[in-house]
Design a protein around this nucleic acid. Sequence first.
RNA 1: GGGGUGGUAGCUCAACUGGUUAGAGCAUUCGCCUGUCACGCGAAAGGUUGAGGGUUCGAGUCCCUUCCAUCCCGCCA
Length: 465
Amino acid sequence: MERSLTKETPSLVGTTVKLQGWVENLRILSKVSFLDLRDRSGKVQCIAEFKLEDLTIESVVEIEGEVIKRPEKMVKEGSETGTVEIQIKSYKVLNKAAALPIPVAGDGYDINEESRLKYRYLDLRRDRLSKNLKLRSDFVRAVRESLYNQGFVEVETPMLTAPTKEGARDFIVPSRMQPGKFYALPQSPQQYKQLLMAAGVENYFQVARCVRDENLRADRGFEHTQIDVETSFRTQEEVRAVMEKMVKESIKAVKGNIKPGDFPVLTYKEVIEKFGDDKFDIRTEEEKEKGILAFAWVTRYPMFKKVDKEDIAEVRDGKSGWTFTHNPFSGTIAEHKEWHLKGEHLDEIEATQYDLVCNGFEMGSGSVRNHDPELLRATYKIMGYSPEETEASIGHMLKAFELGTPPHGGMALGIDRLVMLLAGEKSLKEVIPFPMTYSGNTSVMDAPIEAKPEQLKDLGIKVEK
RNA sequence: GGGGUGGUAGCUCAACUGGUUAGAGCAUUCGCCUGUCACGCGAAAGGUUGAGGGUUCGAGUCCCUUCCAUCCCGCCA
């Protein structure tokens, strides 16, 4: 007898099947018992003309029985397997479940998150979350297929890398072999992917995990996953076309509801005038109700901005009083390269930068990069870096750009947020298998924890509290 | 770093203005019940009211401290 899946049972009437799964619910009457069995494919009702014993909800069982058609009156409407049931001949309890700390039935929204995360493996059994996990998998698969079809190569970049001098706070990792020195976890593969362009990869992508030690929000965690793309010899319009094709194809593959037509392209100036914010929503009220995803491109961002004196990070980067708006590696539009080189009209210089926005969320941003070493030096000079400081910060990039690096550009697209919108969820945690709490505590296992004294000694670290 | 909301049984909640032994539904255990599908009926068990301190004859309730969760602002190239 072959092992079967519950969703196949309507086509197996009259045969004997072996099913394995979880007890979703039990209804035990005196001389007949019902058991709703769930496996990864779905659910089916099993009936025993004897009393089922030693079973609890969410126990794991193996059932052998005949698939029979339900009497007409007993057909369950709205269920995929509602026309059949399994006449249990024998069953085995593979793992008996104790009383559950959280219910698995229902959508789980009203259960406190602390319990949901502590028992995340139970939480993930509920229909809503198991569907979200599957949706995410299907989506990423479609993204990969689209990019492979467009000639891209998936390349992995290091998790232990050099700290970023600009930008968000790094997560740092102590080096045992070189006490007192540290690695950083990547905030993004930005520099590596540009170096891959120098390496002649031409079309790179990665499903990349990125880590930033900044405070959390419903739409932002320490870790996030991005579709990271970089490509050589393409114009800004061509890079955007690659990404737009990928987004459309992968959303279609998961039957997502996307607004038809090309993504509108707006300039930063237009967006600010019209919406007052570059995270805007172009949907009509009707489209909002239908859960439609409406994307838009934003282009022609300013390259530089005056440093906000309240902002410590900006003051640190922009010693001159000016800093970059998005990314120091962004290029400038052809008409403004002269200004950029000379450091003139700083507030007017436009970057070859673009953002992708969807339903009021920033989904990703990218640019055609600055692969001209003189222009990149100019960027750092404008921010107030001395030649020596520039060399120390990005000397390796400048060197690569002097050794035959093609013009290139790319983009990073946040998967968590996009899958969140596709799933109709309001929090990233609903589409991340093991998310953290707001104060950075992990699910199921306890982290962060204090390191053992011998570990610290090994690393040459003294802890002060 | 700042602000809002919350924490009572395993889960979801109730408990008036500070007042008897802190209640209910679900889950668990036991009993009854041939067709249930949120099965039904009956019973049992289940509590340091997040923690610590204070006020009071008396605190789940009021005050202070602290922890945790959640949401927002700062922050997130």
